[in-house]
Write a protein that binds this DNA or RNA. Structure first.
Length: 458
RNA sequence: GGCCUGGUGGCGGAGUGGUGACGCAGCGGACUGCAAAUCCGCGUACCCGAGUUCGAUUCUCGGCCAGGCCUCCA
């Protein structure tokens, strides 16, 4: 039984989908104005594991996963203006880069990737319904959500309206009826992209696109809504309020709210505004994407995780160990294609990936030392567990030699053949000389009963 | 100020009212022409104080420390 921690009820609960034939999940996606950093990738990878797990439990075609793309925003506008191009040029460029980067991290593409600019009709329709139902009002070219219309406002983030007023750090716009009211539609500034609406030309506020997309792509209520824990307030609080008041939310908005913890650089949250970021785009030039994925999942998704070079190095070493086991067991035929029960249990325990990783190592150990039957089972379980979580699907030789082209491989094989001759002749000085030569090429040779294997050191 | 997380061994990181996480690093041994890998074994931990309890790292309260959010910023 899958259990998930729900932010709204603040407890870990059995997961029961509204319809097991159509399990719905929505995760807040990127604003595409620059490259994603590794902190941005944490929810993508964590919820990718959940997506894969749900597909495993309910069937591949039974899970519908939508992740939005915010492609209209001040920063996008600024970048487009700076380059003198239309915003689509910017957003297309960085969306493509984003998808390529996330794919390198082993994340499956969501079923839908709706874009704000292509959801405009639904956004305007939803705002219209909110106005009609007195859950929103127009004022000075803006449309604002009326927080007084929703009695549970603050429930998700655990805040009361009174607290918010008391703690308000920002001047309240004069056109707001209540300080907590938030913008659904606002006028564009000169030169910015603009859409026509019943309330005048302008563009959507921050939160409304997600509610519109969820209505359009998934239908209320959805089973799972995910995102970073900085989105709980105000974004998800507002999203839920407007979504429920729009007329289709009588059965709730999202049945399970999941929020991931942050990646820290040193003691601080990694964030673009602090400038302490490591871009995925750059990291994938330094490490295998699979090692980055492992590093991201080496801590539980709700806990903070400190991002360091050493974390990735350890992740790489862990995968070397597992791939090494698979490489040595190349001759073992898997006797199952199902992950072990413990592996599945670990993931079903609110995505306990560290516990699942421990099971990877246990299986690898059985593969190394077990009887033939146990090995065959362990290999099958290991590969199946890997497939479920997005690991270990590469050819082990390719994992260790991945950076080498054919010419390089031929050269290495030649040297290894020469060295084999020397070893047969017990010409140790010559054998060691060739080992040194290979080491200079960054190649490590491992002698074994069945001949020598090699890997790139990197 | 309000709300919310978290503080576990050299490092990363699970978990539990009373025995084992797991991985990395380290140490000893086996194997090995050398090396690597692998195998066997070893070590060190639960922020502080009080309480509940036969017993607390685990529950409660208080404190200290760190981090996050507190509206047009994703």
């Amino acid at each position: 039984m899958l259990k998930l921690h729900d932010t709204l009820t603040r407890e870990k609960r059995d997961f029961v989908p509204k319809d097991p034939r159509r399990v719905t999940m929505y995760v807040c996606g990127p604003t595409v104005y620059t490259y994603a950093h590794i902190g941005n990738a944490r929810p993508v990878v964590a919820f990718d594991v959940l997506f894969r797990l749900l597909r495993h439990l309910y069937g591949e075609d039974a899970v519908v996963y939508a992740a939005n793309v915010t492609d209209v925003d001040d920063k996008i506008n600024a970048k487009a203006a700076a380059e003198g191009v239309a915003i689509d040029v910017i957003t297309d460029r960085y969306l493509d880069a984003y998808n390529a980067d996330m794919s390198t991290l082993g994340a499956l593409r969501p079923t839908f990737q709706p874009r704000a600019t292509r959801t405009m009709d639904t956004i305007i329709d939803l705002i219209g319904r909110l106005v009609h139902r007195n859950a929103a009002y127009a004022a000075e070219g803006h449309v604002l959500f009326n927080t007084q219309a929703y009695s549970d406002y603050g429930k998700l983030s655990g805040r009361s309206l009174d607290d918010m007023i008391a703690g308000a750090r920002v001047d309240v716009a004069p056109y707001k009826q209540h300080p907590a009211d938030f913008v659904l539609w606002k006028p564009s500034k000169p030169g910015e992209p603009v859409w026509e609406s019943p309330w005048g030309p302008g563009r959507p506020g921050w939160h409304i696109e997600c509610s519109a997309m969820i209505e359009e792509q998934l239908g209320l209520p959805i089973d799972i809504h995910g995102g970073g824990n900085d989105l709980i307030f105000p974004h998800h609080e507002n999203e839920m309020a407007q979504g429920l008041c729009g007329g289709h939310g009588e059965d709730g908005y999202a049945n399970y709210w999941l929020h991931n913890g942050f990646l820290n650089m040193g003691a601080e949250k990694m964030s673009k505004s602090l400038g302490n970021v490591a871009l995925v785009h750059e990291l994938i030039g330094q490490w295998p994407g699979e090692a980055l994925r492992w590093a991201l999942l080496s801590g539980h998704y709700r806990q903070p995780l400190e991002w360091t070079d050493d974390l990735v190095r350890q992740a790489k070493t862990s995968l070397d160990r597992l791939y090494g086991g698979l490489q040595r067991a190349a001759g073992v035929a898997p006797s199952t294609d199902a992950p072990s029960a413990e592996f599945l249990d670990a993931l079903c325990d609110d995505l306990n990936t560290p516990r699942a990783f421990a099971e990877f190592f246990r299986l690898a150990s059985v593969l190394e030392t077990g009887e033939a039957g146990a090995q065959a089972e362990a290999k099958g379980q290991l590969l199946a567990a890997g497939a479920l979580a997005g690991f270990l699907q590469a050819d082990p030789d390719h994992w260790f030699q991945g950076g080498a082209d054919e010419a390089f491989k031929a050269r290495v094989e030649g040297l290894i053949a020469e060295r084999a001759e020397a070893r047969v002749a017990k010409d140790w000085p010559r054998a060691d000389r060739i080992r040194d030569e290979l080491a200079a090429l960054d190649v490590e040779v491992m002698d074994g009963a069945a001949g020598a294997r090699w890997k790139l050191k990197r």
